[in-house]
């Protein structure tokens, strides 16, 4: 029993079909409970009711980065071991990542307006998120531009690799370029001033919920891609016959 067995599309379809209802249920329960719980938390004495936005902002931002990392790993697996499911999973993940980045940016803008008095600031964190969004757009555009599926998988995987290096580079370059307005990580273990437990537990729940939400969307989208691929193969066979 090895993890590479799931590289077989049939096996992947069977297993993902079996676990999908559980993942979807978990995602729905965690996200809805987390968001409702978050919405009912008391106001922060400094930020007022805007603190409720954190339950969307932080999980979305976290997933935006994690999804890119997941795409990088999937691209590497495709390049090294040539498992088609891996390439399709990377393709399926990109739009989810782009939407998560967009949610992070929008909630950040709406939150920044009353707190900092501006919708947008060229702050390192904000800027690097915008750059990440650009990388997502380029990646998705490249996938949709190339017709041959295997070439598309190869080229996007190479782009993902190079893009990861440059996205990381840009992240540190913008720190050099402008000092920030954005607060530091609210949940890091080292930081002295930590979030109060009132906010922390619903936040953990929404983070888990967004993770499960991503997983369920990823499974569904990958299944869609596999079905499309199989359909194309069947149609090609029919044409030849």
């Amino acid at each position: 029993m090895s993890i590479w067995e799931y590289a077989n599309p049939v096996k992947f379809m069977r297993t993902s079909g079996a676990i999908l209802p559980w993942v979807v249920a978990g995602a729905a329960v965690c996200t809805v409970t987390g968001l409702v719980w978050g919405f009912l938390t008391p106001d922060d004495f400094r930020q007022g009711s805007t603190v409720k936005i954190v339950f969307l902002h932080v999980p979305a931002a976290m997933m935006a980065i994690n999804i890119w990392v997941m795409m990088l790993v999937a691209s590497l697996i495709w390049l090294i071991r040539r498992h088609h499911v891996s390439a399709l999973a990377a393709k399926a993940a990109a739009p989810i990542g782009a939407v998560m980045t967009l949610i992070g940016l929008i909630t950040g803008a709406v939150w920044g307006q009353p707190m900092w008095g501006t919708w947008w600031e060229w702050d390192p964190r904000l800027t690097s998120f915008l750059i990440l969004f650009l990388f997502y757009i380029g990646y998705i555009a490249l996938w949709s531009a190339i017709e041959d599926p295997d070439s598309a998988a190869d080229l996007t995987a190479v782009l993902c690799l190079v893009g990861s290096v440059f996205a990381l580079l840009s992240r540190y370059a913008v720190f050099f370029w402008n000092q920030g307005l954005h607060q530091g990580a609210s949940l890091s273990v080292q930081s002295g001033e930590r979030m109060s437990a009132v906010y922390r537990y619903p936040l953990y729940l929404t983070m888990l919920g967004f993770g499960l939400l991503f997983l369920s969307l990823l499974l569904i989208r990958t299944r869609t891609e596999i079905r499309r691929r199989r359909l194309a193969a069947l149609q090609a066979r029919e044409m030849r016959a």
């Binding site: 750059i131 650009l134 990388f135 757009i137 380029g138 555009a141 490249l142 531009a145 190339i146 070439s151 080229l155 190479v158 782009l159 190079v162 893009g163 440059f166 996205a167 580079l169 840009s170 370059a173 913008v174 050099f176 370029w177």
Partner: peptide
């Protein structure tokens, strides 16, 4: 090299390449 096989690669090329130019641009102007 990535877009060489595409018929309308010009716009896509700029979309792919410009984000990669960001670090160079930042340090150059700085």
């Amino acid at each position: 090299a990535i877009t060489v096989g595409l018929r309308r690669g010009g716009l896509l090329l700029s979309l792919l390449v410009l984000p990669l130019y960001i670090p160079t641009l930042i340090f150059g102007t700085e």
